[in-house]
Nucleic acid binder design. Structure first.
Lengths: 248, 248
DNA sequence: AGAACTTTAATTGTAAGACAAATGAAAATT
DNA sequence: AATTTTCATTTGTCTTACAATTAAAGTTCT
């Protein structure tokens, strides 16, 4: 075990628990602590860093919040370096992205542009590699979006599911992970929109175009479909926001 | 203030501090706690949730680790809902992405493909909008990459800086944030590569092509340049890994 | 009255000790 | 040999206490 105190700038001494967490985090990121390796017990860490156990525990909880470690009780328990799974990474990515958008007055246009730019990056790969399951998921969501009784919120959720299937079709987990934030974080913004029956019809038509392009492995058409959908979404948002708040 | 215990599935009762952290996190994400709002004091939270103060503190440290709150000591101190800045979001994104790649046996090819796909999504926007500062940064890094005394690690760092300038040129902070993880997390993988003088020359030439395309606002050429660079990088990585570990 | 200083109260940061709960391993028993 | 019991280890939680910090209220001096 090699965990040394962070020897960085003395600037302003942060909390002890933050310092200890940083030291252990560095050890993990630099490979000095490997996956599934057991950290010393809380008592040992407390002695090593010359702090009390509650302080060590606060540090460990910080790391647990980032899924860097997991803890287990019992005789052979302890804190273990956690293999960060794609699932956990998704969740964190989505939390961070959602809050970033909701707290920073990011315009709908900016977020929307980013999302569709990223999706267009996936489209060619997805068109080339999509499996039957991804196509089926896309078709299923399109059907669902046609149900008239669907609330706006459920329509948005289905929209997200459609786009996630599109992204996952690229068969690149890193890409799926990166896009998860961009797609999911848009949902709260999309939920501010009221989808009229007419706009739903247009969106469903565009979704169908995109799904068909993916099915036909037509990369160009898939990208063009996404561009058309982006334009439609942006126009819809503009009209909704203009109607709702004519004070801006 | 409205913070109610998470009423989710009873599955397996997690730690109290995790439950409390989740309850407060939900309150923040659902807007029941707004930016800069002060949370109740630790003592009040302890009473509200019927737990001890150390347990509350562990919960708060979890939230602090995600930059959801910040704390301040003193008479008017306390825990405040933190406005998640792009800086903080970058940092978390990079930490998560880096660990995800290093811990999950993601192949260089997969990570590289994702990175360049995402960068190609930025290229058209960057070509359209890049400012003089972004172009200058790109040229500066290209010059730096030509210095013969540069270590491989410094060459990689400059490469990252070049690509970040390219991404930032798109003028979309959301896009920059999303790409930060993809670009930076590749650096440890790139550092495993030895860059011969010949390969450096080729990379610099491709960087120059890309910078020129961006300068000329030629979207197509910028994308093609990135594709060429991706091919070059992938080929380089293949040759390096094949030479180094012929056991796989 | 006003400015500088002091006190005070509130709040987070840290420490120490204790007990509960979980858990696997060792020991005892059948 | 198999099963049960005991036990030691470790995390989870509580209690109490004190230190450090900070802004506001109060006090004193000019």
């Amino acid at each position: 075990m090699k965990i040394e105190p962070a020897s960085s700038g003395p600037a302003r001494p942060a909390d002890l628990s933050a310092q200890i967490a940083a030291a252990i985090r560095d050890a993990i990121m630099e490979g000095r602590l490997i996956v599934d390796e057991r950290l010393p017990s809380e008592a040992e860490l407390a002695e090593h860093f010359a702090v009390s156990r509650p302080t060590v525990r606060e540090a460990l909880k910080r790391l647990a919040a980032q899924s860097l470690i997991r803890t287990q009780r019992g005789a052979t328990g302890g804190a273990f370096v956690n293999r960060l799974s794609f699932e956990e990474a998704y969740a964190q990515q989505i939390t961070t992205s959602t809050l970033l958008l909701s707290m920073n007055a990011v315009s709908f246009a900016t977020a929307c542009e980013a999302r569709y730019a990223l999706e267009r990056a996936c489209a060619p790969l997805s068109a080339a590699r999509r499996g039957a399951d991804h196509l089926a998921a896309m078709r299923r969501e399109i059907n669902r979006q046609g149900e008239p009784a669907l609330t706006d919120e459920a329509f948005c959720a289905s929209d997200v599911a459609f786009h996630r299937a599109l992204v996952d079709g690229a068969g690149n987990p890193v890409l799926s992970y990166q896009l998860a934030g961009a797609v999911e974080a848009m949902q709260p913004l999309m939920n501010m929109i009221t989808f009229s029956a007419r706009s739903r019809t247009r969106i469903i038509a565009l979704h169908t175009d995109i799904a068909n392009a993916i099915a036909a492995q037509d990369q160009r058409a898939a990208c063009d479909g996404l561009t058309a959908l982006e334009d439609e979404t942006q126009a819809l948002a503009r009209s909704v926001f203009a109607t709702r708040s004519p004070r801006a």
